[in-house]
Nucleic acid binder design. Sequence first.
DNA 1: ACAAGTACTTACCCTAAAGTAGGTGCCTAT
DNA 2: ATAGGCACCTACTTTAGGGTAAGTACTTGT
Lengths: 130, 130
Amino acid sequence: MTAIKESSTIQQNKQFALEQCPVTYVMEKIGGYWKPIILYHLSQGDKRYSELRRAIPAITEKMLIQHLKQLEVDDLVLRESKPVVPPFVTYRLTSSGRGLIPVIQAMADWAFREVRGEFADRIHASASEG
Amino acid sequence: MTAIKESSTIQQNKQFALEQCPVTYVMEKIGGYWKPIILYHLSQGDKRYSELRRAIPAITEKMLIQHLKQLEVDDLVLRESKPVVPPFVTYRLTSSGRGLIPVIQAMADWAFREVRGEFADRIHASASEG
DNA sequence: ACAAGTACTTACCCTAAAGTAGGTGCCTAT
DNA sequence: ATAGGCACCTACTTTAGGGTAAGTACTTGT
């Protein structure tokens, strides 16, 4: 067991931090507003850059490319470019990225349940108004 | 079906936005760095203010109370204070908040899988170094 | 008398994240 | 000839999220 030498303390700290709060680790990778939204769209299938742009009209190009680059260095997203003109660039989830699909899916499920709940409340309120 | 009158367009927009991207709805509620971390600790059981503080040493009091208040108005967290001195305030998840447990749990699961993966990679790399 | 613990609140500051608005190079369609 | 689509890049500015440090009110412990 001589593997992991000097860096073992880092690893131990990481293990420690993880036991303290695993969610912190996740936030370091996909914290912020846009990343989970981008990941959601990629979870629906591989997308070209321009497809992502159209799928998320509210995001600026700067934010989109910036987060895509970061997701790439964090090995959550893979960028594949065909050397043609006009450019043809595809983004897809890596296997780590696909590991986040349950998270994204749980988020989507919750959102639907919440809004259905509001809907039901509203009908109920209107009904009891007379 | 005359329930929902003037406000129906808002509701329709919400439904539309939700179909476009349910994750956006989630981000409006729990986006940012700290909220999921707070929710994780509350998912482990009801906590007093000071317990949360100790559980999340990296957070400042300002951030903690600020996000707790916001989670309260968003009906994800319930604040219960006993009128005693010294104060005794407990925070717990509401039913909406409990609905997020699968999200938080999926995050925690992913974090553990990721770090185990890194660990395995590291051992593998060291082994093939000689 | 003083520190420490409870659960906050307030004022000030700073930085990192995000928005604005341009440009690049190359091609196709009108 | 000009506009538009592709996938970006860059400089500048704004905003909001977060950090620092102090104070509040009341009680218990030493």
